Deep mutational scan, measured.
Amino acid sequence: GHYRIRINGREFEIRGISEEEIRHLEEALRNGADEKILKEIVDRLRG
């Protein structure tokens, strides 16, 4: 998958993330885990 997200007015492209991972992120966001989720995304993109 290849997705664009906007955070604090800046747009980011996220590549190589699966539909299942996105559902997991959405679930966590609904549970209020904003900073933790951003850290997970950044860590994943770093490799």
Rank of each mutant, 00 (worst) to 15 (best):
R6F: 15
R30V: 08
K36T: 12
N31F: 09
R10V: 15
R44M: 11
L25A: 01
G1V: 08
I17A: 15
R44P: 02
I7G: 00
L38A: 03
N8A: 06
L29E: 03
I37S: 11
E35M: 09
I7M: 02
I22G: 04
E19L: 14
L38V: 10
D34Y: 14
F12V: 10
G16A: 05
I37H: 08
A28N: 05
G32N: 10
L45F: 13
I41D: 00
I41F: 09
A33L: 12
F12H: 03
E35L: 08
F12Y: 15
G1C: 14
L38I: 13
R10G: 03
E27A: 12
G32C: 07
E40P: 02
H24F: 15
I37A: 12
V42H: 04
E20F: 08
D43F: 03
R15Q: 13
I22V: 08
K39P: 01
I41N: 01
A28T: 09
G32Y: 05
L25M: 04
K39A: 12
H2D: 12
H24K: 12
L29K: 05
K36D: 12
I37W: 09
R4M: 13
H24G: 14
R44T: 10
E20R: 05
L25N: 00
R4Y: 14
R23T: 08
S18Y: 03
G9N: 05
E27F: 09
L45H: 04
R15E: 10
R30P: 02
I17H: 02
H2I: 15
A28C: 12
I37Y: 12
R44Q: 15
E21S: 09
V42Y: 07
G47D: 12
Y3K: 02
R10H: 15
E19D: 12
I7D: 00
E35F: 10
R23E: 11
L25I: 13
N8L: 05
I22E: 04
H2S: 15
F12A: 00
G47Q: 12
N8G: 08
D34N: 04
E35I: 08
E35S: 09
G16R: 04
N8Q: 06
R10T: 05
V42P: 01
G47A: 11
I22L: 07
Y3T: 02
I22A: 07
K36W: 06
I14P: 00
L25H: 00
E26Q: 08
R15F: 15
K39N: 11
L29D: 01
S18V: 04
